[in-house]
Amino acid sequence: MSDSPTPYRWSLKARQKSKRVLGESKTLTLDDNLFMAQLQIQLPVPDLFAAASYRGTCIHAVNGEELVTDCSGIVYWPTHQMVLVADLHLEKGASLARRGQLLPPYDTMTTLRRLKHSLDKWHPKSVIALGDSFHDVEASRRLPAQARDSLNEMMRGRQWVWITGNHDPEPPENLGGEVFDELRIDRLILRHEPQRDGDAGELAGHLHPKARLMRRGRSVRRSCFAASTTRMILPSFGAYTGGLNVFDPAFDGLFDARNFHALMRGDEQVYRIAAADLS
């Protein structure tokens, strides 16, 4: 494997922590080459379909980029050996506990263990968390030592990017990783909250999509990837995060009527269901 930067064209909006003021969305453009050197992106895996990991996945192209959706709820981008994950909502349990709902305090570790499982499966060179990685601004400070260790271990030897979200507008404390409001890689743009009039090729989270299938008087509800040829919204990965039906008004304007798919998460497989078949 070569250490040389890939020939792909990158553009990105990055942010310097020191210049960050709460509520202000200041963006800086870093030098492309400098960033690429930091990323040390590898060339794509030579044989896309050889690995057993692909069993049960669905391959979906957004803006021409082929992405692998895994039933654990992550996206693997073979071109860059990159894992994308949305809405981890770490420390959601503790956050709710503070307001009087004493949910079991195991959600952070459960989420991280599931994430580690995915990373062990895909061995990505880089990981991009698409925002709302922490349930509140103090969550990263509050992170139990065990969770911090586990996270550090996953981050070691990898490029790790935190995209900011509405729950975590501030960069996490003492955790490392790059922090961006949004990021452009090849023909894709990665951000937390999907934008209605944004460019094609958007990968986002925020909405926690779930879909509902009715057959023979029975219904199945599952969290899903909502995806068209120009956009994909990832399911939420966090252990306590509820979902929102893809036909909720919050999705209005993001997809062209019923011309999209829900990649529904089964127990061991992702099922690709046309929106027209959902309810």
Binding site: A50, I59, R215, V220, G266, Y271
Partner: peptide, 25 residues
């Protein structure tokens, strides 16, 4: 209602996985 009928079966029926199945090993 047939209780306990596998939800996964329902999903599989409705899924358009042929293409990806053909493409995966």
């Amino acid at each position: 209602t047939v209780v306990g009928e596998a939800n996964e079966t329902l999903l599989a029926e409705a899924a358009e996985n042929l293409i990806s199945e053909a493409m995966t090993v």
